[in-house]
Design a binder for these strands. Structure first.
Length: 1052
RNA sequence: GGGCGAUUAGCUCAGUCGGUUAGAGCGCUUCUCUGAUAAGGAAGAGGUCCCAGGUUCGAGUCCUGGAUCGCCCA
């Protein structure tokens, strides 16, 4: 805080405090604090000091560092920072190990884009080894950006020892987990219909479908197809036509059956063209809007077994088996949409597939892995299936098999990275049988505290209840290889460590990634044939879900270390991790350890741009974190994120709100601190002088408020509520600056040690409270005012001390009285500078005692000579009585209107004094008498006309408005002080410079000046006052009269 | 279509157990105070508490239905 000018009185002790620039640049200050942290190795020290203390666990949800960090990453990182900092100060050992998520499709896609690849063949031709090498270097390409931002925003996390999911040790731990799951019979391979990306050539897991941007609104064809019944059966006549509906015409070539609901009522209807159609009864109008005659109705069960002619002839009935191209009964059919008869293509729908299994139909899949038809679909072979839709529709139309074709807007899933529409597609995949452990997942969730709590049984709980088996495998390259080997006979062995693999194969793998691991083979223990690894890698979410143990290479190493830190006390991520990391962590831990891996989860919402829309590059409304930091600093950024709202509600980003936080909070605090240092310098105050002081009422008050704030901040932070904890600090700073310091200025000019001691204690304690929130400014204040520790972050978090509740209440009443008095002045248009004889205060009992106790303060603020108390309001106002609904409501219930009327009818003064003296007041309700006591009545004042009275609740303040000559002179003296101070400021004098004061002008003003000369001289540090003609300075106007003020620096 | 959440002043947000004049900050108007402050204080303007029903003596708050927005699922 270089400052060219600050007061240094000759002869005073050199101050231990660096001078403080009241207009400090926070970004610059933060850079200096950062280098101090580096020099003093503060983060490491903060851990070191807690060696052996109870651990408090934090897990870092690993980001992928293949792009620069953005605003929402700042949000996550500052919330990940604040609670570990707090807990460290509370005495816990809070290890914070960084981590990077390294595998997965996004990385592969970036490399593919770099190389101009469009398919898996391109990659295989290029070579998996080289491809993966590129992935490896790309995935950490932005780590430096991340590290720089992480340090700059004050997120303390160990980045030097960060875990990386691509490391050999990490993968080995993941292998252990998979082997354990396999050995428990929970890992299996099965043909299932999965959401499949034909471009990426891999299936997506259900939680990948939970990624943002997966479901997009698209226009698809909506076609109604006629399927003629080939032979009469049940309710169907030969030649009747079943009507089915689909939005994926390309699946019609694979139609295997039609499903109906056995209970649903269907109808044979005659259409315009004379054909007889079969549809669900309640859908007749929607399917045939031009009208149709219902011939008969019957339940769906009567259609079972009806054979029909498929929409296309490419694949014959025999291919599917006996029940091919017949009507089957399904439990998934609804009359919500379509026709109530569901086109079933076994390979392309989950329900379809299950129905096929149930009826023993063969799976026939004429679509290749790249999403094109194979040769079985004759003229369409080689075409991308969705591109064939229109031609297929025309084909149907030409053959008279199309009832209607429209377009239909609906949301449809797309690949979360390459945005290709997904196909539901039957493929063999490896699964983890999480659904078999669903009850354990739910039980684990019960042990977790969620913030906000509705996530527990809402979004997350509901997600768990709908749990399906985890589709684990990916037919890709850059990922943790699935450690499963299989022999031609189908014997399977899962490998749990590299050592185990070496023992079997004799190969010590340096890099367990593909393609190296693919070459490792060994003999099957059962049939002595060669075992070969299955080709898949695993879902990256399993990698990150394994981090509790894999980050330590447990259980191969550090098992105890892991156990001590499991489960984490705290994790924090964006709400979109419900299906992502929150789930994968819970699932992995529930399967392996049968317990939740975390105790408390703080969820974060979405940050919208200033314009209320999503931040997106195309809209040009993205906020670069560096811009915020360079302009306002990390503390301001953090403060905004912590206190502007509850983080899970999401943010509408606002630069202006950050600036407001600087003005309203950081600068307020900073200036209070600068004020302390300025006057400590001016008075030669050093902390050693502040040991034993006699605190004033005001000192005791702010200390009590300080303790109250310590209580609240601890209580809120213990409940992971940074928002209200921060707001409590803000309130305290406001009270400190705008009441305590304002009311204590005189004492600081006079060098009162008690005032210095109090303000210093408040500032140091606030610095400690603020340390987890705004680590930079907090440390700067602490370091300059105290510095007993190398950093505020090495301090213990403040413990609440004794409070004086009576004094806090008294001050609140006194401040209220001041507010009323100032309002009365405002109404009377009387400046505060003009002293008045008296304020008349209506107050009794505790209120009166409180105001009397703090009477000096009230007089000063109101600038009145005395306070007069009246206990009866009639001098100033009429008493108005109202019922206290809170107490009387439960007692009288629906008779409350009668009670209110009875209270209104009471004699206000008499009733008020009666209850004040402890007697009860009688009212009559429904013929019965009831007694009301003080707590049943709300006494308020209604001002009488002609008085300048402000009232609030049960007290009021009136002012005596008469101004005599004496008061008038005093008023003048205050005016003169005011203009002299201005002149001092304009002359660029320092606050402690002594002056020679010359006054010239209006006679009455000069008389006032002479009368109050010592007061004026004292206030303005004038060593002498003279009254001589002046022609230099411009005259100033005071109430229409002129005064010239001459100010000259006096020799010391 | 289903789940979860939100909707309070021009803007950003509080609002406790349901209690009768719904608050704060910013912004605006007028005034005021100032030996720290980019500040502070007073007054004013600004509200169908999303809408409609219901429960209750009493609803911003509880219930039902609806609207809009967001997230998630399908």
């Amino acid at each position: 805080m270089a400052s060219s000018k600050h007061p240094v009185d000759a002869g005073t002790t050199a101050s231990p405090h660096r001078p403080v620039d009241p207009r400090a640049s926070f970004p610059e200050l933060e850079e200096r604090v950062l280098s101090r942290w580096r020099e003093r190795d503060v983060f490491a020290q903060s851990l070191h000091r807690r060696t052996g203390a109870a651990p408090w666990g934090f897990y870092e949800g690993p980001p992928t560092a293949n792009g620069p960090p953005a605003t929402h990453h700042v949000l996550a990182r500052v919330f990940k920072d604040i609670f570990p900092r707090y807990k460290t100060m509370c005495g816990y050992y809070v290890e914070r190990k960084g981590g990077w998520d390294c595998h997965g499709l996004p990385v592969e896609l970036a490399v593919e884009a770099e190389l101009g690849f469009t398919s898996k063949e391109d990659i295989e031709r290029y070579g998996i080894a080289e491809f993966n090498a590129r992935c490896r270097s790309l995935v950490l390409s932005h780590v430096e950006d991340w590290n720089r931002l992480t340090e700059r925003i004050g997120f303390w996390i160990d980045l030097d020892d960060a875990y990386r999911t691509l490391d050999r040790d990490y993968i080995e731990s993941v292998w252990w987990a998979l082997k354990t799951i396999h050995d428990r019979g929970l890992l299996y391979e099965k043909l299932k219909v999965v959401p499949y990306c034909p471009r990426c050539g891999t299936a997506l897991s259900s939680h990948e479908l939970g990624q943002p941007d997966v479901y997009r609104d698209v226009l698809d064809p909506s076609v109604y197809v006629r399927l003629p019944v080939t032979e009469p059966r049940g309710a169907a006549h030969a030649g009747d036509e079943l009507v089915v509906w689909t939005t994926t015409p390309w699946t019609l070539v694979s139609n295997a059956a039609v499903a109906v609901d056995p209970e649903l009522i269907y109808a044979r209807v005659r259409a315009d063209d004379g054909a007889v159609l079969i549809v669900a009864e309640e859908l007749v109008e929607r399917v045939l809007p031009s009208g149709a005659d219902v011939l008969e109705t019957f339940p769906g069960s009567e259609l079972e077994g009806v054979a029909y002619e498929p929409p296309f002839g490419f694949i014959g009935r025999d291919a599917y088996g006996e029940r091919g191209h017949t009507v089957l009964l399904g439990d998934f059919v609804t009359a919500q949409e379509g026709t109530g008869l569901v086109h079933t293509a076994i390979a392309f729908g989950e329900d379809d597939f299950r129905l096929g299994e149930q009826y023993g139909l063969n799976v026939v899949n004429p679509v290749r892995l790249d999403g094109t038809f194979d040769e079985r679909i004759g003229p369409y072979a080689g075409r991308w299936v969705k591109d064939a839709d229109q031609d297929l529709i025309e084909d149907l139309r030409a053959r008279g098999r199309l009832l209607r074709a429209e377009t239909f807007e609906h949301s449809y899933p797309h690949c979360w990275r390459c945005h290709t529409p997904l196909l539901y597609y039957a493929k063999p995949s490896w699964y983890i049988a999480t659904s078999q452990r669903k009850d354990r997942l739910l039980a684990a969730n019960e042990t977790v505290n969620w913030y906000p709590d509705h996530v527990k049984h809402g979004r997350f709980g509901k997600w768990l209840e709908g749990n399906v088996d985890w589709a684990l495998s990916r037919e890709r390259y850059w990922g943790t290889p699935l450690p499963v080997w299989r022999c031609p006979a189908g014997h399977v062995r899962a490998i749990g460590s590299l050592g185990e693999l070496e023992e079997l194969s004799g190969v010590a793998l340096a890099d367990p990634h593909r393609p190296f691991v693919d070459d490792v083979t060994f003999l099957c223990a059962q049939c002595e044939d060669q075992m070969q690894r299955v080709p898949e890698v695993i879902d990256v979410w399993f990698d990150s879900g394994s981090m509790p143990f894999a980050q330590y290479h447990a259980p191969h190493e550090n098992e105890e270390h892991f156990r001590e830190r499991f489960p984490a006390d705290f994790i924090c991520e964006a709400l979109d991790q419900t299906r992502g990391w929150f789930y994968s962590l819970l699932a992995v831990s529930a399967l392996l350890f049968d317990r939740a891996p975390y105790r408390n989860v703080v969820c974060l919402g979405l940050i919208l741009a200033e314009d209320g829309r999503k931040m997106s590059k195309s809209l040009g409304n993205v906020v670069d974190p560096w811009e915020v930091i360079d302009r306002y600093g990390a503390d301001a950024y953090r403060w905004y994120l912590f206190t502007s709202k509850q983080p899970w509600d999401g943010y509408r980003f606002s630069m202006e709100a950050i600036a407001e936080g600087v003005r309203q909070f950081l600068l307020q605090l900073w200036n209070t601190y600068a004020f302390y240092v300025l006057y400590a310098h001016a008075n030669g105050v050093v902390p050693e002088m502040l040991g034993d002081t006699e605190p004033s009422e005001l000192d005791r008050w702010i200390r009590s408020r300080l303790q109250a704030t310590v209580e609240v901040v601890r209580e809120r932070l213990d409940d992971f509520d940074a928002t209200f904890a921060g707001r409590a600090i803000q309130e305290l700073v406001d009270e400190l600056s705008n009441w305590y310091v304002r009311r204590s200025r005189r004492r600081f000019w006079d060098g009162d040690p008690a005032a210095f001691a109090t303000l210093r204690e408040c500032l140091v304690t606030i610095a400690q409270l603020l340390a987890p929130f705004c680590p930079f400014v907090a440390d700067e204040i602490y370091d300059n005012l105290d510095g007993a520790e190398p950093s505020v972050h090495l301090c213990d978090f403040p413990e609440p001390g004794a409070r004086d509740l009576e004094l806090e209440e008294a001050m609140a009443i006194a401040r209220e009285t001041v507010r009323l008095g100032l309002a009365a002045r405002g109404q009377a248009k009387l400046k505060v500078r003009q002293p008045l004889r008296a304020a008349v205060v209506v107050a009794t009992g505790r209120e009166r005692a409180a105001i009397e106790r703090l009477g000096g303060l009230v007089r000063d603020e109101l600038n009145v000579h005395e306070l007069r108390f009246v206990s009866q309001a009639d001098e100033l106002a009429e008493v108005e009585l109202k019922p206290n609904y809170r107490t009387l409501g439960p007692r009288f219930g629906k008779h409350m209107p009668v009670v209110a009327a009875a209270v209104a009818g009471l004699d206000g003064d008499r009733a008020a004094s009666a209850v004040r003296e402890g007697r009860t007041v009688a009212i009559t309700v429904g013929g019965d008498d009831h007694g009301l006591s003080a707590e049943d009545l709300v006494v308020s004042m209604k001002p009488l006309p002609g008085y300048q009275v402000e009232r609030e609740g049960s007290h009021a303040v009136g002012l005596e408005l008469e101004i005599d000559d004496e008061l008038r002179m005093e008023g003048w003296a205050r005016e003169i002080v005011h203009v002299v101070q201005k002149a001092r400021q304009e002359a660029g004098l320092d606050i402690s410079d002594r002056i020679a004061l010359t006054l010239d002008g209006d006679a009455e003003a000069l008389t006032a000046a002479r009368t109050h000369e010592s007061y004026i001289a004292g206030e303005t540090l004038a060593v002498r006052v003279s009254y001589e003609p002046l022609d230099g300075p411009e005259p100033v106007q005071i109430e229409g009269r002129e005064l010239r003020v001459g100010v000259a620096l006096a020799a010391p």
